[in-house]
Write a protein that binds this DNA or RNA. Structure first.
Lengths: 370, 370
DNA sequence: CCACTGTTTGAATACGTATGCATAAGTCCA
DNA sequence: TGGACTTATGCATACGTATTCAAACAGTGG
């Protein structure tokens, strides 16, 4: 039994070697499919190891051989096989971008704010030599294990206001699995994660103060004010803070929930108006919601900004094309995307990473009445 | 020499086997890192081959063992290693989405029309079990060889109005390399490719006819009319056809080039207006351009639609929020994305694939004056 | 002239899976 | 009862690269 095992291996191993050698020479001469590092090695008169090292800029290879190998590689249109490389090195130089959408939102729509970050994320990935895998995730899928364990990606970028309750259990699992990941958004309390975000509290405060300074007295807020959407909650807190600072009374009846879509913004505004309370300004938690708010006000025959002034949040591309053009609290999505990628790569490399704020700035257009 | 070679292998192979067995038992008992198919095999009392087959739903495995293996796999949180699987099977079940942007366009902006397809493409990929790699491409990079040769992706989806001259040489190379790929847009003449697109000629004709029917007489066109952007050219041809059908004279001075950005639309409109010709309708080659057109008209104190009526193309999300809301020729991006993915997968599987048109429909809002 | 260091190279192997081939256990029919 | 056939499994291997270890080599100082 053991003897048979032994003999088997002797023969097969030997045979395999010979065949391999013949095949390699064969393929080298009659260049068939894609070129491999063996092909290059053959032509350069060196070993495959040397080719691998040369192309990876290992200092172990002399300048002369590296030059020669690089030339041959270019000539043969050689490209490193991603799968073999990743398998061997156990790292894929690929990041996964997970977009979380409220399942109830329109199928065709992705939150334009997140889309606007896609550009900078993609670009930064390219610059850093990483590939980017993009995936929409239903909130209930088990995305948390799939990407890292399958070695599809070295790290995860999470984008989305989501149902943070379910979300957080998943985040915990990620942390336990030691999966590097970064999030856009507010830092959570219960799970220690790295997130990049703007100072939502300050942004909300700044936006509100702007309206206060313009003389508005009766404020409403459209956007969730509870912890199911931490970013929105922070904006809301900034909102109330600014009102308190200015000694302006605020009626809690003038807050209406809305999260993802313009339609939600529309409905929330209708609800606000139905309260019958005096109202001459609305702070809206996102620009996308704000488009719905504007429509709802128009439908109610209220003029923006004359009757009701509006400030949004995000500065999505659409914001400058609404009528009136939307005054909004801009988040620097270019910087954000770059930061998300850079931080994630640092984490992957094992460096310590801390949460980071990006700056917000108020973009004054017409909807605030000045 | 040969003897030494032989002996070496005998010893090493034997040694390797023993170590492997010990290691496998070891890892199986003391579960350390990620679970492999060997771990499952050990627990299920079967061979690794059987595990692989069971998880891939091979009919060679009995229902009973499959069940058992699946349970253990779930229990261990096992995920197939993407790299190993792809390497072995020489296919990655990954598609690459290449976005081509005019380098001159705003850094932070991606054409919203293409972005709106991203959602459906991603979703369809997920449904079909494919991963999606997203990449921005500078037009001069050698993207054509990288993705397929490196086995990063099994096929390519090309998205973008681009500089089609350089573009076409790349497409040729793709065809020569036997790389499966699909494009969004007009079919080209010189290279035999598979593309999904709408009937741009008919769309342009339909949009124009709508304005004609509303009594407009003096037409302008904003958007490139030459083959550097085939889609736009087709729309332009539909435009002139509709005018000819209605016996309406058309002054070539009332066409101005613009491709990618709202700013280009703005500038093109200024140029149109500077001609000093009578003008009461503009057909615009894309909604994004149209937003700039509207702004330019407002800046020139012209009312839309009273003085100048406008029809756009694409129906991007923003279209309904401009003032006036944009009448436009809608392309069904949901269907398009799905189709692009499905066709590409068919190509990858070696099935014959033909070009396909998706339908366009006119979305009447306010900018046309009715 | 030898021992020793430093620089390049090559030989061998492992990464984890999928699959061709051989084999073992049933099943069926003559 | 035994061969032909079916069904289910295991064995061995290959995919293409990165890396460890050993070895060849040149130069250096004693």
């Amino acid at each position: 039994m053991l003897l048979k095992f032994w003999k088997n291996n002797v023969l097969q191993t030997f045979f395999q070697r010979v065949v391999l050698i013949i095949l390699n020479i064969g393929t080298s001469v009659f260049v068939k499919g894609k070129a491999t590092s063996f092909d290059i090695a053959y032509r350069a008169g060196v070993s495959q190891s040397t080719v691998s090292r040369a192309l990876r800029h290992s200092p172990l290879v002399s300048e002369a051989t590296r030059k020669k190998i690089q030339e041959i590689a270019k000539e043969l249109n050689y490209t490193v096989d991603k799968n073999a490389s990743s398998l061997r090195s156990q790292s894929s130089t690929t990041l996964a971008l997970l977009l979380f959408e409220d399942p109830t939102s329109d199928d065709s729509l992705v939150n334009p704010f997140f889309l606007s970050m896609l550009g900078s994320i993609t670009r930064e990935c390219g610059l850093m030599g990483y590939d980017l895998l993009v995936s929409f995730q239903e909130l209930n899928a088990d995305w948390h294990s799939v990407f890292k364990d399958s070695n599809k990606a070295d790290g995860l970028i999470l984008l989305g206001y989501g149902d943070y309750l379910d979300y957080e259990t998943k985040l915990k699992e990620l942390v336990e699995h030691n999966t590097p990941f970064v999030r856009w958004g507010a830092a959570t309390e219960s799970v220690e994660t790295t997130s990049i975000g703007c100072d939502n509290f300050h942004g909300g405060q700044m936006a509100t103060k702007h309206l206060v300074d313009l003389g508005r007295k009766h404020f409403g807020f459209v956007g969730t004010s509870n912890e199911s959407a931490p970013e929105f909650m922070a904006r809301f807190n900034g909102f109330t803070q600014a009102l308190a600072d200015a000694d302006i009374d605020y009626d809690p009846g003038l807050q209406a929930d809305a999260v993802n879509t313009a339609e939600e913004g529309y409905e929330a505004t209708k609800k606000l108006l139905s309260e019958g309370l005096p109202l001459d300004a609305i702070v809206v938690a996102s620009d996308l919601l704000a488009t719905g708010v504007i429509t709802a006000l128009k439908d109610a025959n209220l003029r923006v900004p004359e009757d009701v002034a509006i400030v949004g949040f995000d500065d999505i591309p659409m914001a400058r094309y609404t009528t009136p053009a939307l005054t909004t609290c801009r988040q620097d999505t270019m910087a954000a995307g770059k930061l998300l990628v850079d931080k994630l790569i640092e984490m992957i490399k094992g460096e310590p990473v801390s949460n980071t704020f990006i700056k917000t700035s108020l973009i004054v257009r017409e909807s605030c009445g000045r």
